[in-house]
Write a protein that binds this DNA or RNA. Sequence first.
DNA 1: TGTACATCAGTGAACGCGCGTTCACTGATGTAC
DNA 2: TGTACATCAGTGAACGCGCGTTCACTGATGTAC
Lengths: 259, 259
Amino acid sequence: VGRWDLVTDPAQQLAAKPSFPRTARARARAQITQEIMAAGRRHLATDGPAGLSLRAIARELGMASSAVYRYVASRDELLTRLIIDSYNELGVMAEQAEQQVAREDFYGRFAAACHAVRDWSLAHPNDYALLYGSPVPGYEAPEETVAAANRVPALLASITLEAMAAGRLEPPADSALPGPASAALEPIRGYFADATPEPLMLGMLMVWASLFGVLSFEVFGRFHQIIDDAPALRNAFFDECVRRWARGVGIVAGAAPAT
Amino acid sequence: VGRWDLVTDPAQQLAAKPSFPRTARARARAQITQEIMAAGRRHLATDGPAGLSLRAIARELGMASSAVYRYVASRDELLTRLIIDSYNELGVMAEQAEQQVAREDFYGRFAAACHAVRDWSLAHPNDYALLYGSPVPGYEAPEETVAAANRVPALLASITLEAMAAGRLEPPADSALPGPASAALEPIRGYFADATPEPLMLGMLMVWASLFGVLSFEVFGRFHQIIDDAPALRNAFFDECVRRWARGVGIVAGAAPAT
DNA sequence: TGTACATCAGTGAACGCGCGTTCACTGATGTAC
DNA sequence: TGTACATCAGTGAACGCGCGTTCACTGATGTAC
């Protein structure tokens, strides 16, 4: 199914460092590093990325501000690590939820992934803002982040592509893309099999963007006084969105599974 | 067409203050106020909302930092005014573009509005971030902003509703919403005529969210290495998005205008 | 098992910077008679 | 038209706060022989 599965395994990333700390020092180091990250995420949650401060973290952990530099090279490096962590946490959430649905229930898998993304986003609004909100001024995300960032779109795409391979996509009556629109997809063409129809590729991109469009609105409070705040109703609204997104790529709820 | 036209007229807002400055003092005041706002937007553009600083603005205008307080009560007040200004600028852009299309060309009007929003967003990425990016930590947008914020969704909705009234909507085969999804729409029901089908209302919300979802991705650089960076191709991609959004609410390109 | 040396965590002071906001004050502009 | 008073713009110093990062240093932990 192409290059989508380039997605890095978080376990693999950790394995880059010696797999388990042997000495007391190494163990302490691992633990404190984690405490720093956790404190960082807590600060993110109250002050936003611009307010993330090494000094504040040091204060919270009861150490001198200079001591943090034993664990983290700079504020930007900490940001990068927090970003990668969050992307992976979100990705794992979505992948696990999707795994628990019967393989041939493509709509169910799609919906499970979307809902998992939403649940994580609502539960971690500031981590969400870090990933999908305004870029942090003066901070340029390094390439290490892209693999983690791709997990969710890769998951949604692979569900769709598997459904297509299984002949279970209800082809939406989309005519071929006009030339320039087709050319616009050039950078990602390599990710897909040649047989993948371009309108479907475009549909997948739109699903991805729309999903995070709706979630941004919901997480950032822009649905206030527009959609009822009650969680059950919000959820029902989102359900309808999922249904339409799925339909947009030809995945239809309740389509007869292979018997 | 309901309450959508509650939208405040920016001219009206200005008219709250004496319409035209008579004395030299008043004229100077108006001008300097505008310079402060302009400098504010420039700073927003380089440092983001969290970096908006009254001192920096004062420095840029060559005045003492305390002098700014003659014009602006606080940093938050300045933020609010910048937000309202930006919303109105964006709204005016979209409305003007939409106005230049023949009234019975509903798809054209819809597309013109979407493209105008996009053009403004790409031209003013940091103003865009202020309006549609992460909320500014510690800042709560006051109610005065909502009227201005509603201009764009109101415009898109009114195009759709006019098309419906003109019998020019190709009704998408959407079944009625399930109960909870229907209940979720309660807060906005009053904005629409009773005859407005609920799936259409939901469709309009999704258009709104998806539009800004795609724009956030584009403005914040998340399409980099995914969609070709060439402006013409980006534009073609967006065109396709517009087509699908329009179709989602039953507005079809090239549908025969009334003859 | 014991010792000598290297590594590393953590300290506290310092540098140099920025911020929002207040306050007492000067001097110019506007207004009422 | 001229004068007396009120209004307002703008100053500069100050308060109290925060930040990232560096540096020389102490003392504990790890390692090679």
